[in-house]
Computed example of a mutant assay.
Amino acid sequence: MTKKIYVIYTGGTIGMKPTDSGYAPSGNMQALLDEKLPPHVRQGLPDFDLVEYEELIDSSNIRPENWKQIATDIAEHYDDYDGFIVLHGTDTMAFSSSMMSFMLRNLNKPVVFTGSQIPLCEARSDGLENFVGALSIATDDRINEVCLYFNGRLMRGNRARKQNAYLFDAFDSPNFPWLGRADINIELSDYLLLKPQSQPEFHLECSEDTQVGILQLFPGITAQWVEAALNQPVKAFIMRTYGTGNGPDGDQALLDALKKATDDGKIIVNLTQCHRGTVHQGSYAAGSALSEAGVIGGLDTTTEAMFCKLHHLLSKGHSPEEIRVMVGQNISGELTI
């Protein structure tokens, strides 16, 4: 039986058209795909139904309510299709694919995010290859998770990061191997793929209010600056530190500000500023001081995945104590234990 794919068009570069203010989201994606994929070409591709959201967005405008819309849409159509594709802007695609991995768990079919660096309306667009590749990936029975496919690379959705604004190789997976590669043939690393442990679980809770902030260390950062940041009305913070998770252990006032925040119930997770690497807070004294201040090591989780994981756990009503434990637990393949 021919497989059928559900395609969600949320906006993003792939469907943009030029305006006086620059490229902007544009509708009628179905007509654009029909133009690029004439009937004799479509015959060799899986069938698909495309839904175009009424409010198309540049992904720089993504908000938690958009994540809830996408996850709910997939959950409601889950039994009717063999796989799913989300056409999404590249700027925050790694955030959205990460969030879907927490909201849609134990899947037994693929959910594939893709988009383009150049709009489909342009002659040199990479959008068609990405879309056709994603269609092939979305029919593969071996894939049972949320993925991100771009320029031939198949990556776990919560391991991918946007690494380049100018190359077609826009995404990479710095702390985890690619799941596969599409060249003449599609080659998958079966041993890396998630295997469903139970029936699919749809965790659709997603607070509309942002629950997480990001604090980046920099040379000369002061306790007053840190304290002002931690006083923002969010419940959890990602602190992006140096190297393997180090911070200025010579500034006792700064450490006291962190300790006060964690004692007051704020969740602070330590992630490295390095593109590739993992946090080991005990490797250096500068990291151990952060641990003593109540900061939790986030291991090799990406910033995008940790942001979404914290938002997800808070949306589900977990307590700070529970979340501090769950930060180090592998929920959807987002970290290496």
Rank of each mutant, 00 (worst) to 15 (best):
Ala223Met: 08
Arg276Trp: 12
Ile186Arg: 09
Asp183Cys: 15
Thr278Arg: 15
Cys206Pro: 09
Thr272Cys: 13
Leu258Tyr: 09
Glu227Asp: 12
Asp251Trp: 00
Ile267Pro: 15
Ser291Gly: 13
Leu271Met: 09
Pro219Ser: 00
Phe237Thr: 05
Val295Gln: 03
Glu205Leu: 07
Asp249Ser: 05
Pro196Gln: 09
Ile221Ser: 02
Leu193Tyr: 11
Thr222Trp: 02
Ala261Ser: 10
Gln199Gly: 05
Gln216Trp: 00
Cys206Met: 02
Val226Ser: 00
Val295Arg: 00
Glu205Gly: 04
Arg240Asp: 08
Gln211Thr: 09
Asn231Ala: 15
Phe237Leu: 02
Ala223Gly: 11
Thr302Cys: 08
Gly243Thr: 10
Leu299Asn: 15
Tyr242Arg: 00
Glu227Trp: 07
Gly220Thr: 00
Gly243Gln: 11
Gln197Cys: 06
Lys195Gln: 14
Lys235Val: 09
Leu271Arg: 02
Gln197Asn: 12
Asn185Leu: 15
Leu215Pro: 06
Gly287Tyr: 04
Gln252Met: 06
His203Gln: 05
Cys274Phe: 04
Lys260Arg: 06
Tyr191Phe: 14
Arg276Tyr: 14
Lys195Glu: 09
Ser288Asn: 08
Leu215Asn: 03
Gln252Phe: 02
His280Gln: 13
Asn231Gln: 14
Ile296Pro: 00
Lys259Gly: 03
Ala257Phe: 01
Val295Pro: 10
Pro219Met: 01
Leu217Trp: 01
Asp263Glu: 14
Gly298Arg: 09
Ser189Ile: 11
Thr272Glu: 11
Ser207Asn: 11
Ala229His: 00
Leu271Ala: 13
Tyr242Ser: 01
Leu204Gln: 02
Val234Pro: 11
Ser283Asp: 13
Tyr242Leu: 02
Thr262His: 12
Asn270Arg: 09
Lys195Ala: 03
Asp300Gly: 13
Lys260Gly: 07
Gln211Glu: 10
